[in-house]
Design a protein around this nucleic acid. Structure first.
Lengths: 252, 252
DNA sequence: CGAACTGTTGACCGAGCTCAAAGCAAGTGG
DNA sequence: CCACTTGCTTTGAGCTCGGTCAACAGTTCG
């Protein structure tokens, strides 16, 4: 059985998160340029659940990270010992943007589950950015999207009730799961919650008690099935109405 | 009186906010390179108080802005009609970072006082970034600082009481005023408040009532003198203690 | 099986919001 | 110069949402 021999492996980096940044430079069958090397020579790192990737005030080691698999939470310390979760990050997300080209990290990152992260040294990044104009644009766009995302999250934390925040959070997790599946199952209302209730609370500026309370209410009403680290949402439409504040949020 | 004739005006752009980005390429008496041109050929814009620089969903026009003089507030619309102030920006600050290389603005910017802003078209920026490696780094650093700043602000809005937020805000305005004066008057405890009480409230995720109430308390206690658009803080040390939550925040 | 941890639920309480009224400053027109 | 308007600020009274504290249930791991 003579299989056709492939002249150039088109995409070793097809599933690579750097893809979006480095694909532009090789429009079609062009020879793989030098810059493509990072995609091939990736150095990756494995973390088990609970292990820190970096902590606050750690040296940045002049590198950042891209999550290939697993979930990571990015957090800061609140005055009172409680922690303030900046973001939950999944596969494809970049880590270390908040301290780019700066000596120390201003946040900490810890694995929620077993993770694989790709290491991206600054030199690789700058080389890419300098040699290839459009990549600088793409990277700037990603940074600005991060700014915009944080602005939206900050906005959500004001003028919204606990229930609204929880509903929005669930929807966010839901469409995140949907995007990962490539919309293959658009009607599968399953969302993963790899983080603890306390983590959810710290993300939404609530207490674990309150999160638990409202989740119970949703469960009692049938808007949410099952309870622990995964959840199915049979009525996303209703959740959307809750998130928008169209329902007065009765306790029971 | 024969004044010595200056051979080359060293820095036409000395007071220019782009300075930090473009100074590196001309270490010393080097001839002014082409890239320096933007500094000289700046197109600037004047706004009177209350005038919008851009609104949400406006076209970005592929340009961003740097404030040369005046104060601008950057805000988004909250669901309930109230507005959520992202940041107050003064001279030297960049505007439009949250929608960089994207078609539409995700926030609105309005002048609080008479302003002068410098227009920076994307092409200038990309030209600068592409030609000069260190500028890309500086720019990325600024973007990442913006991310970090928003993270800190979001962190402040949790686990802090109304009084703490107000104290922190006043201190922030104070050191901002100090920085503008180049620390010429380090002991001059004067801060400008070019925004309304409602704006302060929207920035701190409070109500105008609450802001007014606590400012009154501070005034009654003598930690704060005068009231309207400017304010003097005779006891910054006490404010710092309040901001840190070391004082139980008694109403009176 | 017990220990330690996470999640759930209840009772109470307080910080800040809502609603409302009055005080003040700046502008307008007679 | 003053009556009138308009918008911002201040202040009061009551109420509500979510936090605090605490007890209990369920899970994981030795």
């Amino acid at each position: 059985m003579a299989m056709p021999q492939i002249a150039v492996r088109r995409h070793d980096c097809h599933g690579c998160p750097l893809h979006a940044l480095c694909i532009d430079e090789a429009p079609a069958g062009a020879a793989l340029p030098v810059q493509r090397q990072p995609c091939l020579a990736q150095r990756s790192l494995r973390l088990s659940a609970g292990e820190h990737l970096f902590r606050v005030a750690d040296d940045t080691a002049r590198q950042l990270y891209v999550i290939r698999a697993g979930d990571i939470k990015l957090y800061q310390h609140g005055r009172d010992g409680g922690q303030h979760i900046v973001e939950f990050l999944g596969p494809g997300a970049w880590l270390g943007l908040e301290s780019l080209f700066q000596p120390q990290h201003t946040a900490a990152a810890v694995a929620l589950s077993a993770c694989e992260v790709v290491v991206v040294p600054y030199p690789w990044l700058t080389a890419l950015l300098d040699r290839q104009p459009r990549s600088a644009e793409a990277f700037a766009q990603m940074l600005s999207a991060t700014v915009a995302r944080h602005q939206r999250h900050a906005a959500m934390l004001r003028h919204t009730t606990a229930l609204q925040r929880i509903a929005q959070f669930l929807l966010q997790r839901l469409e995140l799961a949907g995007a990962a599946q490539g919309d293959a199952t658009p009607a599968a209302p399953r969302a993963s919650l790899p983080m603890s209730r306390q983590d959810i609370a710290d993300y939404l500026a609530l207490t674990a008690s309150t999160v638990s309370r409202w989740l119970s209410v949703l469960r009692r009403r049938g808007w949410l099935v099952s309870g622990q680290r995964g959840v199915t949402l049979p009525a996303p439409a209703m959740l959307r109405r809750l998130a928008a504040g169209e329902v007065p949020a009765e306790p029971d």
